[in-house]
């Protein structure tokens, strides 16, 4: 019975802590959206909070669509998106009285990745398309060992998929045999644990010890090729705000694109704006 009263006591203390803090209203910024952007959104948020202790920034993932949805509903201050806002999303935002404003915060490119033991180094756009549409099913056909290819893709609604679909697939459907994983990190896990796998991921997620990035048409995914657009899969990463931002939101976004902020972008493996 003593134990039980301890439990009850703990709960009582918790309630107090729950409702006590709510009164202080330090400005809270919430960032919601693309899983691709999460890593540097979080580390810049941490760094920013160190400089401005009065500001609180929470970061949640779920996907670009989720970010747009949250901005439309007015439950987030910043929507992080790895693709541009679609026209229907912009319309929905307008209908809700919001005015999404685009900010480019980093550059990225998507690279095909394989297990480090795979001898293949380069694939053409056509080969990638054939692999993903299911026409090429053996590594032999693209200069590898005589083994089947395990095709791993992303959910059709992720921003990463959309870029891949537009730049590589060019409208062809990904084979239904492709394994689908729910996030950029899960893709790394899946490819790292499978010698036959091919996947595609944002440059920031490539970790040489676990997975190997392939070049596309002889172009390696590097910060330079991404910025110049030499690699076909380069893209910008965005943050959307409701109207032109002011106050702490503006300060955070300014920090993010400043040299200091971009250092964190680089450290997480993404490509800085300059």
């Amino acid at each position: 019975m003593k134990m039980l009263s301890m439990v009850v006591l703990c709960f009582a203390v918790l309630t107090a802590s729950l409702f006590a803090g709510a009164a202080f209203g330090a400005e809270e910024i919430s960032i919601n959206g693309s899983t691709t952007i999460l890593p540097f959104a979080q580390s810049t948020a941490e760094a920013f909070m160190k400089i401005n202790p009065s500001t609180r920034i929470s970061v949640s993932g779920g996907g670009s669509g989720n970010g747009a949805k949250a901005l439309i509903d007015g439950v987030t201050s910043i929507a992080a998106m790895s693709r541009e806002m679609k026209s229907e999303e912009a319309d929905a935002a307008k209908a809700n009285g919001r005015n999404p404003v685009k900010h480019i915060v980093a550059v990225d490119c998507i690279v095909p990745v394989v297990h480090p033991s795979n001898p293949v180094k380069d694939l053409t756009t056509g080969q990638l398309r054939d692999i993903y549409s299911g026409k090429i099913t053996n590594w032999k056909e693209v200069g590898g060992p005589d083994k089947k290819i395990a095709v791993i893709g992303r959910d059709t609604s992720s921003g990463t998929y959309e870029v891949w679909n537009e730049k590589i697939m060019k409208g062809e459907q990904v084979t239904p045999r492709a394994l689908i994983v729910a996030s950029s990190g899960a893709l790394v896990q899946a490819v790292a644990g499978n010698t036959l796998a091919i996947g595609y991921d944002s440059l920031g997620y490539v970790n040489e010890k676990l997975i190997k990035a392939l070049s596309i048409e002889g172009v390696q995914g590097t910060p330079d090729t991404a910025r110049s657009g030499k690699i076909v899969t380069s893209r910008n990463l965005f943050m959307y705000t409701n109207g032109n931002p002011g106050g702490d939101i503006k300060k955070y976004l300014d920090f993010l694109v400043s040299d200091d902020g971009q250092r964190y972008v680089a450290r997480e493996g993404f490509v800085t704006l300059k």
């Binding site: 709510a22 999460l38 948020a45 909070m49 929470s58």
Partner: peptide, 12 residues
């Protein structure tokens, strides 16, 4: 959420 800056200070 993926990352919160600290403990939740209120139910919202």
């Amino acid at each position: 959420v993926f990352f919160a800056p600290g403990f939740a200070r209120g139910v919202f």
